[in-house]
Design a protein around this nucleic acid. Structure first.
Length: 483
DNA sequence: TTTTGAGTTGTTCGA
DNA sequence: GTCGAACAACTCAAA
């Protein structure tokens, strides 16, 4: 059974909100059929992590940008909300579509849903194809010499680097054939993805430009201005020396293959060491997806099940203080406020704040994972869960239980002039550097001069570092003894 | 086959 | 002030 050439191809956009290097879109254009691009807002897939607040803001603007790009090709985006399978069936009925193409996802719930949809549509005689737009290597293609998935990053990445050629990115189509009769689209504004009352995202546009063009600009700005500092400078939250590509990657506005290609073209000016370090961060994302694919419960369950016995305190008051940036530890509070105000936090500070929640406050890592999921514009299930399990020590690598970040010395080391803390915790900005990371050690005169009343204008530390450290070490030791 | 060394991100203590 | 040791435990690949 063959359909007439006028029967359209549906391109189901998901986390691949770009025209360039988009294999599903590319194949649809190559088919010579009219192309129907659709995005489905699906809140009904069982087991899905529902989009967080900050990610909804990003999605709104990213969809708007995608629609603008599609307009430039003579096409446009159809928006529908509902159960993905039902929406696709309706669109097929309305348009007589003969094919459905999409780029693969790797979360357990999405895989289950997609494979159900694929088999049902194929039974109906449709041409259904899925592609890889998201990863340099899909998880089932990388195995160690015993034929098992890698559980340690370095051998994983060495294997990928030596055996995988990422290939040349696909060009964005300049023309995309449109349908004669267009199906109705819902209005983006009606989806209410943007926050109102209050509009806590009002400052986000100062920091972010969602969309494919913004992503490409961010990458070239980074490689031209900042990447030469990367190997050492990526740990400095007071400097703009990280790529800040994470939200663009999370929504697929740029592909890792594009990033590798552009990074390689800047290798000479950026330097080998900085380039390799940057590419290895792309590698960590690949590794996280590898873990998520092979261990589908990674976002919900301790990878090492002995952590099921960990004596979490789960105190809701200290959790709230952490979320609000009111722990009394300036580097922790600075990070949590940067997150709240911009939807993003510097990677070094993510580690410090995560370690503080898990180890100093003895709070289950899943509480932190959930908060980050809701507040990060770059929320990515694979990266978020792998990183939280890494800090907790419950993850795939044998993390030393004694790795407990000292929030005072970490601040002094990585924000040496206090610029990061002063920006995000302005109420203590007048403190001299000597006390900036430990206001409780400043005497009454110093505090008064700085306009600080501890416990009033800025909190006393909610736990004592040394005592909290000992408490955490004991708790981790108890896991070992009980085993 | 067995052994061995290395592995993103740290801290503290004592010499 | 600087420096090395100690703090466990598991994966992976090379020897």
């Amino acid at each position: 059974m063959s359909s007439p050439r006028t029967a359209p191809v549906i391109v189901w956009f998901r986390q691949d909100l770009r025209l360039a290097d988009n294999p599903a879109l590319h194949a649809a254009v190559e088919s010579g059929r009219p192309v129907l691009p659709v995005f489905i807002l699906d809140a009904e897939t069982p087991g899905d992590w529902k989009l967080g607040g900050a990610a909804r803001w990003w999605l709104h603007h990213s969809l708007s940008a995608l629609n603008t790009r599609l307009d430039q090709t003579g096409n446009h985006l159809v928006l529908r909300a509902g159960n993905s399978h039902n929406v696709l069936k309706e669109l097929i009925k309305e348009t007589g579509a003969a094919a459905v193409y999409w780029n693969r996802r790797y979360e357990s719930s999405a895989r289950q849903r997609d494979s159900d949809i694929k088999s049902h549509l194929k039974e109906q005689g449709l041409d259904v194809q899925s592609f890889n737009a998201t990863l340099l290597v899909e998880p089932w293609t990388v195995k160690n010499k015993s034929g098992d998935p890698f559980r340690v990053f370095t051998p994983f990445w060495r294997s990928v680097r030596s055996e995988v050629d990422p290939g040349t990115p696909l060009k964005a189509p300049s023309q995309i054939q449109s349908l004669d009769k267009w199906p109705t689209s819902e209005e983006l504004d009606d989806w209410n993805l943007l926050p109102r009352n209050p509009d806590w995202a009002k400052d986000f546009p100062d920091v972010w430009t969602p969309g494919e063009d913004g992503a490409r600009q961010r990458l070239t700005d980074f490689l031209e201005d900042d990447a030469a500092h990367y190997a050492g400078g990526r740990d400095r939250p007071d400097k703009p020396w990280t790529s800040r590509l994470s939200p663009h990657l999370a929504f697929g506005e740029i592909s890792p293959r594009q990033i590798v290609a552009v990074a390689e073209s800047h290798r000479e000016t950026v330097g080998d060491k900085n380039t390799e370090k940057f590419l290895s961060e792309i590698g960590w994302r690949e590794f996280s997806y590898n873990l998520l694919y092979h261990f589908p419960n990674f976002p919900e369950q301790n990878y090492q099940d002995k952590f099921d016995r960990f004596p979490w305190l789960n105190n809701s008051d200290t959790l709230l203080a952490w979320q609000r940036g009111q722990t009394g530890y300036p580097i922790v509070d600075a990070g949590m406020r940067q997150l709240w105000q911009t939807g993003w936090m510097h990677n070094r500070v993510r580690m410090i704040t995560a370690s503080f929640l898990i180890k100093h406050l003895m709070t289950d890592w899943r509480e932190g994972e959930r908060w980050f999921w809701d507040t990060l514009v770059d929320a990515d299930l694979a990266n978020n869960s792998a990183s939280w399990q890494w800090v907790a020590g419950s993850g795939a690598d044998a993390a030393p239980y004694f790795r407990i970040f000292n929030p005072i010395t970490q601040g002094e080391k990585f924000d040496p002039n206090g610029e990061y803390i002063r920006k995000w915790v302005p109420e203590i900005a007048q403190l001299p550097n000597k006390f900036l990371n430990k206001p409780w050690e400043a005497g009454p005169i110093v505090l008064k001069d700085a306009g600080i009343e501890l416990g009033q204008t800025y909190p006393e530390p909610i736990v004592d570092h040394s005592a909290a450290r000992e408490r955490a070490l004991d708790a981790f030791k108890s896991l070992k003894e009980a085993a």
